[in-house]
């Protein structure tokens, strides 16, 4: 989780991501930031986020992003 928070703060400094509950829908991270965010997450966690994963439900909070990462890591 710490690595993810570090990435999020890198993409959008100055946001309290630990407590944000609507990151994508409130456009705290817009579609432009998503490209950088996904690339960094892919590299850090060795997963492949696809367009199907880019839905608001997965990007509500740091926790939901982390859940998505775990799901993709465990996916066979």
């Amino acid at each position: 989780m710490d690595e993810l928070l570090k990435i999020l703060n890198n993409v959008k400094p100055g946001v309290d991501f630990e407590h944000e509950e609507n990151i994508m829908e409130d456009e705290i991270i817009d579609s432009f930031d998503i490209v950088t965010l996904v690339s960094m997450i892919n590299d850090e966690f060795d997963i492949e986020i696809t367009p199907a994963d880019l839905v608001p439900e997965n990007f509500k909070s740091a926790k939901t992003i982390y859940n998505m990462i775990e799901r993709l890591q465990n996916e066979v």
Binding site: N10, I34, V35, T36, S39, M40, I49
Partner: peptide, 29 residues
Amino acid sequence: VFYPVSLSKVTLKLTNFSRKIFKTSYFAK
């Protein structure tokens, strides 16, 4: 269009390249 092209190999390569060149600067994004 936007998301599939953004997550395509070409764009992800471009993202990594630009992160290497511009580090954490605004242009990396």
